[in-house]
Amino acid sequence: MSQSTLSIKVEFGGGLELLFSNQRSHKVSLPSHVPTAPPDANTTSEQGKKESGRPADITYLMYWMRDNLLKEREELFIENGTVRPGILVLVNDTDWELEGEGEYVLQDGDEIVFISTLHGG
């Protein structure tokens, strides 16, 4: 039952893909539990201090994306340990606010969508 890696589909909408090599859909594999050694030393400063070994949640996914996918300008994606205001997140087509936001524990095969609304109207 417990897997060592999770396969997650990450998608971007509203122009957020521009921060991620302009690729709208990413298939990512990440550890099912937060590794003891953070993938990046920077991680320790904010989220890394949270217990390592916990099941991978969306917050972990965000930092994993920052370290592995984000090409530029982290501040346009992450702010104060969560997504920047104006970015909404869907977990399997459901608002993450109904799923515990960053604390939602990822399941194998989950589809996580990040949509920017900051392009104005």
Partner: peptide, 10 residues
């Protein structure tokens, strides 16, 4: 709101 617009667009 902008959020609802974002969801609609998606």
């Amino acid at each position: 709101g902008m959020k609802e617009c974002g969801v609609w667009a998606w």
